[in-house]
Amino acid sequence: MKQLDPMVFVVVFQEMLGPLFWPLIAFILVGALALLVVLIRDGGVHSRRLIRAELIGLLGGFAAVALMMWVTASSPGDLLGGPIDWLLTIAIWVAGVIGATMVAYVGLSLIVRDNSDHSRAFRR
């Protein structure tokens, strides 16, 4: 009787986010595209910038968990209900880290243009 339909996820996310749904999708797409453009422009990953972005990303992970707690009126102790709660918390944190790192990397690349060769760890 039950069958999983991916479209249901899309519909439910639309209901959840309301008018923010499409702007958020656009933000994610533009962000991913901007990262690609920056990587092509710089000819690879800029290691120093990546480390800075990752440091910001770590904070982004905690921000994501904090946001989730705020949205759901939860307190820190609630996150320790069982192993699945730890996994959910970690998943939210990781998602926050990845998202914030990408945003920070693009942001730093647009603000600071450092072309010094020694700072490039990986070149294509």
Partner: peptide
């Protein structure tokens, strides 16, 4: 709060 949320629904 609800509007801001995008995580966890998975």
């Amino acid at each position: 709060r609800r509007s801001l949320l995008s995580l966890g629904a998975a």
